[in-house]
Design a protein around this nucleic acid. Structure first.
Lengths: 207, 207
DNA sequence: CCATGTGAAGGTATTCACAGCC
DNA sequence: GGCTGTGAATACCTTCACATGG
């Protein structure tokens, strides 16, 4: 069943598979079965096969999937096969931590610019990135930066996203705990850390 | 339709509603319609009404929902009506940022203990919490700490969760980018920040 | 024989439209 | 009139079982 529309839930899982594939690439093996990958990532093997079936035949029956090839294909689907330069807005505690966070590299993503309103932060260097004044946000387009991470206080989130959109950004990862509006050509994913912690107690029996 | 089983997706949205209710509580209004709440939180009004319908009749036709009462009820459902003390393991960049993060308070959650293996970090005070040696993790039970946040490197995640489970923790928010195993009486939510950023390009048209 | 890929079945969540109530 | 609560319809996702292919 080639070239079907890929379900959102599958897209959500693709980065997990990619991570697993890259981890298992170190094992020396060239191929990997859906069952073995399932072990790595904690998703049932039939789910993995179903997910992969949405975008073509990449496995070999009796053998498994070619790790290298599958990883490349997933990157292509996720559009991680071209360089994606990312900007960070808001260099507070969380922003600084994100600047130092090595995890983005896993997916070929890099934070190459950082902005803040606070003049005391402007000019600082964190992890090889110089913090710039927020007013310079309009240089993003010419610098070919199409992704942004928003780590500003809640009140500043909407104006921040507005200026990012004006600067030509196409995708935003928002850490501010609020809804932000954007034209639908711009994808916004909001990640409210506290919210995730808040739904844990629901699943805890007692105490 | 009272006392139905609450769908997982509804549980996921409850903290959003709670946040919206608390924000709108400042408006001076006593009541709020599903439509008005929809504006605040960015979830359609029919979805909100459906979600609330799973746990009883809290609204008044023609008037809306009593903000205070609904907020209290949601807290009860999420089991946020009792004190939930939280521990943090791993006081690196991300861990430190989480210690300073004020957002948990929104849900009545507090980080009251922090642990790290690095002796240079032990003894430090961040945001009124003293960093303790990791070996003291076994004191969690007697200190009535049932939630934990894991912000350690990937390799350390599984052993960390193991010792948390041994120390009686019932819920874990894991920031390490990997699957972690735990007995099913313990709920683990893994939040891989880079993964969220990685699925943005998929939704971006071009460039 | 082993592992993939996929129709079909089953389950869950979203969306609609409207009856019922203030 | 306005807004809630909900059955019914729809869409979506998961799970299974097995035919197919190396």
């Amino acid at each position: 069943m080639r070239y079907h529309k890929i379900p959102d839930e599958t897209v959500r899982r693709l980065p997990i598979y990619l991570r697993g594939l890259m981890l298992s690439a170190d094992s020396g093996q060239e191929h990997l079965s859906s069952k073995a990958l399932a072990e790595y990532v904690g998703v049932p093997s039939w789910q993995i096969r179903k997910d992969f079936s949405y975008f073509g035949d990449f496995g070999t029956p009796g053998v498994g999937y070619h790790i290298e090839r599958l990883a490349r294909e997933i990157k292509k689907i996720l559009r991680l096969d071209v360089i994606r330069r990312t900007a960070l807005v808001g260099v507070g505690d969380l922003g600084s931590a994100l600047l130092a966070y090595p995890g983005f590299r896993t997916y070929g993503l890099d934070i190459v610019a950082a902005f803040d309103v606070d003049p005391r932060k402007v000019g600082k260097r964190i992890n090889d990135v110089k913090v710039e004044n927020l007013t310079r946000i309009d240089t993003l387009k010419e610098r070919e930066i199409s992704l942004a991470i928003v780590a500003v206080p809640r009140e500043a989130a909407q104006p921040t996203v507005d200026s990012l959109v004006a600067a030509g950004v196409k995708g935003v990862l928002n850490f501010a705990p609020c809804k932000v509006a954007a034209p639908k050509r711009v994808k916004v994913i909001t990640l409210d850390i506290a919210m995730e912690l808040a739904r844990l107690p629901y699943y805890m029996p007692a105490g």
